[in-house]
Design a protein around this nucleic acid. Structure first.
Lengths: 341, 341
DNA sequence: TTGTATGCGTTATCAG
DNA sequence: CTGATAACGCATACAA
């Protein structure tokens, strides 16, 4: 009915030109450079175009101009609560720059991730890789052939935005120290995660400074169930507080503790990182508020810069472009005074 | 460094042909129809292409073939926990069909949503609209000019997949009735939501059947805080159980009840819908497990069918394509025997 | 099995 | 301010 056969007959620039009684160039200019045309012409052509349901064919535009108007955004796992806000912010920022966003899911797998980038290369103007699991040399060779921006991966020479969770992590340790805790545990995140390394280092450092004994462990999987299972292990350690790699793990820990009758923050203290779900736990969780949205926007900005930088023949912009965004602690309700158990 | 100026010099099919000592069409066939070529030729061309970092230009392919290899997926809010799993599943299914996915965020705004679709129209082969907030006539006119698939919106004539939460909702009412509850409340979701209407109707029906008195209310906003605030209101109603439109609202309710010292399920019973976060609440929430991933896959399948249907000149497929996916109750720990308060 | 020629829809360049 | 023309990179019909 709507599409009798062969799909909707897409109106072309030529058809609009015919009906409007102008040349194809004029139709083109109506959409790309209306300021070069007499207002009345723009008006007339526009209305004809609307009537015919004409939309410029992106493929043809891309072929001619070399700009596809599409960027790629590859994340390890769309369903991980960390990424949707980032995606949303990036997508909005990109749209403002007239860019659409293709999402790629790397499935927490560096190889798949790299393959995605390879695929996307032919359909996009540039790609943002968030928390890439890809190995460094591969990442570098990808950067040779595509405009790349990294999020939370520190690779000199590649434009990148880094969320610096160290200050927030230090604050957490300080908060725990102030509450009298002297033995705490850190529950690690994914091994391939740059952020995990950074967080661990900051915590180790702060613990040294405050004379706190730190034990580290790794959940079976860095997800909710992993955290829940890790609760038992944490309790056996004889610590009075724990810091989780991220909110998901923290929330799992919280559930695991509740299941075992351990009341937070009365009997045990807990902090996490990211502020993705900690406002919705009960009790609300003290965490480190990562500027996830800002990171998404910054990544798009870097990419857009890089895109523009290649429009003029000038090859500047050689500076090592990095944007560091500090993450600060958000105090909620999961830290209490130390009580020996 | 990597991109001296003018960006990475993209290798073209012609350049590969030169280096490999074959004609451009042979290079083309190497990628599109390798079976038409002598294996040794494919081998040689492939290696040259790899060396040069050649990737077929999507825009040129699209222009020539009329197939862009990209579909659009527009959702009201990427950050809403309901959509990431759907996006992920759809994206994976699309990839298997050789399609990339552009995500659009409609910002819970029908007008923006429609504008997004208009924009995406020129860059995609078809668009999936999940839980569209767009008004029916607009949706219909969009369908005139683009291949469209709807999720959770029942518009005759437009291919659509509908998650039927009615059976699950009925089960919830039955479960509550069995536990002795005779007065319950339903906390509504977004007014423009088709799903909310369906759920409410099913609950009303089941309550009649079981002789349960139903009160309905609407949270300020259908989010976590809205649910938390609604807890007070629900308690004043004098009901002994509540059903929330979705998990997010339910989780908020759970938090609000906990804050007021009401223990779930001992003092009060609660169920929700979607199964997005209810496995991670404490206690884990009894809910209705919507086949979100299946819906995403089904939507892609419908779209792919529709895409293929227009390849051959045959204009069949006029049947009203609908896929209904039943949602069943998932029992967890938030329903207990009725205890008058 | 491979090469040659043409055109997809658009925009940039150049004339007028 | 507007029109004619060529070319973007590729896939295909046709020729060899």
């Amino acid at each position: 009915m709507a599409h009798p056969r062969g799909g909707p007959e897409r109106a072309t620039i030529r058809r609009v030109a015919e009906v409007a009684g102008v040349s194809p160039s004029t139709v083109s200019r109506t959409f790309s450079h209306p300021h070069l045309l007499r207002p009345s012409t723009v008006e007339r052509v526009s209305s004809v175009a609307a009537e015919l349901g004409y939309v410029p064919d992106g493929s043809a535009q891309a072929l001619k101009t070399g700009r596809r108007g599409v960027i790629g955004l590859v994340v390890p796992d769309i369903a991980n609560a960390f990424f949707p806000p980032l995606i949303r912010a990036a997508q909005t920022a990109a749209e403002k720059a007239g860019l659409s966003t293709i999402i790629g899911d790397g499935n927490e797998d560096g190889t798949k991730e790299a393959a995605m980038v390879g695929r996307l290369r032919g359909q996009t103007d540039g790609i943002i890789l968030a928390s890439p699991r890809t190995r460094e040399p591969v990442l570098r060779s990808l950067h040779e052939v595509t405009r790349l921006v990294l999020v939370n991966r520190d690779l000199a020479g590649v434009p990148r935005v880094l969320i610096d969770s160290a200050p927030g992590m230090r604050s957490c340790v300080r908060l725990l120290a102030g509450a009298g805790h002297t033995r705490i545990a850190y529950v690690n995140g994914p091994a391939a995660s740059w952020s995990n390394g950074e967080r661990l280092a900051a915590i180790e450092d702060a613990c040294r400074e405050h004379g706190i004994a730190l034990t580290t462990l790794r959940a079976r999987l860095p997800d909710h169930d992993g955290g829940r299972a890790a609760a038992a292990e944490v309790l056996e350690l004889g610590v009075t507080a724990a810091i989780a790699f991220d909110d998901v793990l923290g929330q799992g820990l919280l559930a695991g503790l509740a299941e075992r009758g351990v009341r937070v923050p009365h009997d045990f203290s807990l902090t996490a990182c990211d502020d993705t779900v900690s406002a919705t736990t009960y009790p609300p969780m003290t965490t480190v508020g990562c500027p996830i949205r800002e990171a998404g926007v910054a990544a798009v900005e870097l990419l857009v810069e890089s895109l523009r930088g290649s429009d003029d023949g000038d090859g500047n912009g050689d500076g090592d472009r990095v944007r560091r965004l500090p993450a600060e602690m958000v105090v909620r309700g999961t830290v209490g005074r130390c009580r020996e158990r």
